[in-house]
């Protein structure tokens, strides 16, 4: 239902962000995210940046897996 595109913010101008996904660029609305800066990564859906991304998927998956695999279990943090 919700194809997302993770992309890097190249430029911000009056609520519009120019984003870059592996060299493909497009202007998207940045109105729903207040504190965006060039260099940030965002999740884009249908031409709107809907969330700022704080880590790579591999890093995050690795952390989640570590919390599962370690006996102290902090996955629900």
């Amino acid at each position: 239902m919700c194809v997302g595109l993770s992309a890097k913010v190249v430029k911000i101008d009056h609520g519009t962000a120019l984003i870059d996904a592996q060299g493909a660029r497009r202007e998207v609305s940045a109105e729903l995210l207040s504190d965006l800066e060039p260099g940030d990564y965002v999740m884009v859906h249908a031409g709107i940046a809907i969330a700022k991304i704080s880590a790579s998927d591999t890093e995050e998956s690795s952390q989640v897996l570590q919390s599962i695999l370690t006996p102290t279990d902090s996955a629900q943090a």
Binding site: I53, S54, A55, D57, E60, S61, V64, Q76
Partner: peptide
Amino acid sequence: TASEILTALACIVHESAKGKAFFVNCYPRV
């Protein structure tokens, strides 16, 4: 992504074994 979906499924398997209802956010980066 591939790693995110597999990890989330692994998390369900892991939590289910504990025998009580659970909620885990496996996607906090977004």
